[in-house]
Each structure stands twice: as structure tokens, then as C-alpha cells.
Nucleic acid binder design. Structure first.
Lengths: 247, 247
DNA sequence: CGTCGTATTGAATGGGTTCAAGTAGCGTGG
DNA sequence: CCACGCTACTTGAACCCATTCAATACGACG
């Protein structure tokens, strides 16, 4: 029951290396985690509120999100997840899911039993700390989204999110030159930012007409990083990326 | 440099016991953590954005909050903290503060060096796990506040917050009979919920006229828990309190 | 008893929503 | 290769929840 394919764990290694250096031994150990891969179609639940999972789910390819549905069908998306992320890492310590997790695109995921994760964190406390650290960065991102939803205009919220996603992708080697994948719909964006898709649409048009971004197909290009990050009041400190300070 | 007064660490023990059982040995070890107490007046910063703290700060008495100031003086309060909380626990793993922490009332705090915290978590992995778990519950609360700010009406946001704070206080033995301290101003509430104090005021009046709450001086009474939690769509699952299920 | 922070009230304004209709893009199968 | 059908995107106009600005009342404390 070892990895069917060593490549399946490469995104996790890249992610962890962006948090803390890994020894050769640690990398080898990660490669031997007992995982198995699965392919999921777009818009498919991975976990649902109230579930009690016994395994973690690493995103190998594609995008996923956490979300919650409220009365009346309102949806709040709480985070977007990209290859290398383990969106349900928290389930190691919190039995019950307080939100759902779903794919946004077609996804390849790797399933890792809790048991294996726990053993691993004990045998390699350095990696365990990196994992804890990662959940703390996630929390910082939640705080920032809370701030956006509470105190920023629609224009600033969208700008801020684009800057954030670009940097996260760049950090794990999935973007450069201010160009990245953005395979979500305007409705997904609206539900992440506490807006309506109608208003997201109008605001994106303003953003395009000011030549801050291009977004066609599933590719986002940030045409003017300075102006966009200024509009979003974006300060990357909260992402805690090594060697990256305030804008 | 041991605790000047064993009582100073009692709130931490009560909090940790609400997360996981503690052995007698663990309790004794906590009592011997090298802390020293400080008293702070209301509205005083404990830590500021960009600080690089080398110690943690346990709230022994009084209320504190995390917050961030945006351009134009807008403020977002990201959490309220009560006795037993260690609002800067994250600084163990994240060097730079991405937000500030301040007192809301007169506070007694206990300062604990990072070093001592880390040693302690290594010697008592059970307690270390409880601490990690606590940061994950904090993250769940951030997600819930994000959801409030994004998708709930002013009325529901206030109702939701009151239910949450009451339960948190009750869990550590600081409230019962639907009555608790709420030593914050309407402006603080507004900045936590992404509203203006004017609108908070009007919404509180509606809430009072429906006889859901009484809030005079610094004491909140939830007169109708059922109605209030329904109005706030409050489901305590995200607080991950042992033995407490959905409403 | 004055003073400063907090709470309250009124009226005008506005950012974002709602509802409803129409258009473009794209994968699929005939 | 085009017709079909679905989903995502776009547009317009009316509406509303919450903000803004400004003024007044309260209340705790020295």
C-alpha cells in the first residue's frame, strides 16, 4: 500500500519545502507514505459537514474549496485550495467536519490515513511542525478574508484575492510572470467574497477597463501588479512566505 | 522565575481541561511554567503588527482582541479573547505578527517565554496536541466570522456572536443561566462584525424590543436562547466543544 | 457639576442586491 | 460539422440594507 506513483507526492514535498527545508531522509519518508490516488470530476464533494473522516486528502492536481451552505441556499466559500494543499489537515485533531470540501475543477487527490499522518509527524517532528505552521498560515488567510468581507469594497476584495492566489501559486512553482490559472467561475468568486455574481461581473469589467487584469478562459494575467495590490490594500505579510516582506 | 502565584495559571488549566483531560503531573508542570504577571489598562496594545515576539501572552483576567487597522482608519476586530486564551500562541511558529492584539478592558496577563512553551509541548505531547487543537478551533471561529461578514444580515451577525461568546464563556466556567459578561462597546461590536456602530445600535434596539436579550452595564442576558440562536443560524459544531452537538 | 466617551436619533445617500431577460461559449453527440 | 443544450457571462432598472453625516442625550467618574 505504498504510493502507486512517486509523482503523486511531489506537490506535497514542494509545498513543505516552501515552508521549511526538508532533509533527504524526510523527503524519502514522504515518498513512502501509504497513499492512494483518486480522480474526481469538477463540483464533487470530498467531505461534507458532520463527516468524521479517518484520512486526509492531498490535492495533487486541480483546485478545491471549503464551503458552507446557509439557510436559503446562500453559500460561503472559505478557501481555495491548490496542488500541495491538504485542506482537511485539521481533521487530524478535530473529529467532526464543521464545513464541506469540494472540487472546483477535475482533481487528482491522494488519500492518506490519519494514522500514517500521525506516525509520520511523530517520527519527523520537523515535518510535524511544518504542518502545524501550515494550519496557522491558513488561519491567517481566514482572518484576512474576514477582513475583506467585513471592511473592504467589492473592488478591493477581488483585487486582494487575485494577489493572494497569484502569490500562493507562485510560491509552489505553479505561476510566474504575473500569470496564473484561475479556474473558478464568477459565481465561485462571489461566494468567496460575500458578493453576488452580478456585482462581481460589473466590478471585473471596471478592473479590466482600468487595464489591471486580463482574465480569459481559465488564465488570469495581472497586468499591473502595483496598481492591483494597491487597490486591494494587499500586504503579503499574512502569507508568511519566507523572505517576502511588505509590498 | 516560577509563577509568582499559582492562581495566575488556573485559567489556562481550566481552558486546557475543556479541550482534553489533564493528568495530575501535567497540571503540576503547568503550575511550574516560568511566567510573570502584568496588569494592563483598557485599550492598550499587547502586540503590534510586524512585531516579532519571543513570548506568549495568557489572558488571566479581562477581555482582549485581535485587530487590524486599514487605510482610512477602518478597523477589523478578528477575535475576542477571554481568560484562559493565549491569543498569540501562533507566534510560536510564525515569526512576524500579521495583526495587532490589544486589551478591551483592564487585563491581567501572564507572559510565558516561547522557549518554555516549546520545551513544555515536547515534554508533554498531550498538552502540545491540545494547544494545536486550540489553534484549529480558533481557525474554525475565523471561518465562521468570515461567513457572518460575508453572508449574514446585521441582525444575524449580532445574534450569532452573542451565542458564540456565551458558549465560550460557559465552557470555561465564566457564565451560566444564559447570563455573561459582555464588556465591549457597540463600536467594538461593529468593528468585529463589519458594520457601523449606528447600525449596531439600531439593530440592538430591535433585538431588545423582540425580548431576545437584555444588555445593560457590562452584562448580557440572553432572554430567549432558542429564538436568538435561530435568528443567528447558530450551530455550535464549529466550536468543537466536547459533548455538544448541533442546536 | 463639568467632561469625555458612549449611546441614540433623524434624514439623506449609496454600494450592492434583486429580478428578469438576453447572449456567448463550449462540450457532446448525431 | 453543425445543432443542441447547458452553464457561465452580461446588461438594465428598481430597490433596500446599511452607511454617512450631524446633532443630541446619557452616564460614569473625577
Amino acid at each position: 500500500m505504498t504510493a502507486e506513483n512517486p509523482a503523486i507526492l511531489a506537490p506535497l514535498i514542494r509545498k513543505l519545502e516552501s515552508i521549511a527545508p526538508l532533509s533527504a531522509e524526510e523527503k524519502r519518508a514522504i515518498q513512502h507514505l501509504p497513499v492512494h490516488g483518486r480522480t474526481l470530476t469538477a463540483h464533487q464533494d470530498i467531505l461534507r459537514e458532520k463527516d468524521r473522516p479517518t484520512q486526509c486528502c492531498l490535492i495533487v492536481d486541480g483546485w478545491a474549496c471549503r464551503y458552507k451552505i446557509l439557510r436559503g441556499g446562500r453559500r460561503q466559500i472559505m478557501s481555495f485550495h491548490i496542488p500541495g494543499d491538504v485542506p482537511d489537515l485539521q481533521s487530524l485533531h478535530l473529529q467532526v467536519m464543521d464545513h464541506s470540501i469540494a472540487t472546483l475543477t477535475r482533481c487528482t487527490v491522494a488519500v492518506i490515513p490519519h494514522e500514517a499522518m500521525r506516525d509520520f509527524a511523530l517520527r519527523f517532528p520537523g515535518v510535524g511542525n511544518a504542518l502545524w505552521r501550515d494550519t496557522l498560515v491558513d488561519a491567517a488567510i481566514f482572518r484576512e478574508w474576514m477582513t475583506s468581507n467585513g471592511r473592504r469594497s467589492a473592488f478591493a476584495r477581488i483585487a486582494h484575492l487575485f494577489c493572494e492566489m497569484y502569490l500562493k501559486l507562485e510560491t509552489v512553482g505553479l505561476a510566474d510572470a504575473h500569470r496564473c490559472e484561475m479556474p473558478v467561475t464568477q459565481l465561485d468568486l462571489a461566494d468567496a467574497l460575500g458578493l453576488t455574481s452580478v456585482h462581481v461581473n460589473r466590478t471585473l469589467q471596471a478592473m479590466r477597463s482600468q487595464e489591471l487584469i486580463t482574465w480569459r478562459g481559465k488564465t488570469l494575467v495581472i497586468e499591473d501588479w502595483r496598481a492591483l495590490s494597491a487597490a486591494g490594500e494587499f500586504d503579503p505579510t499574512y502569507l508568511h512566505i519566507e523572505g517576502r516582506a511588505a509590498a
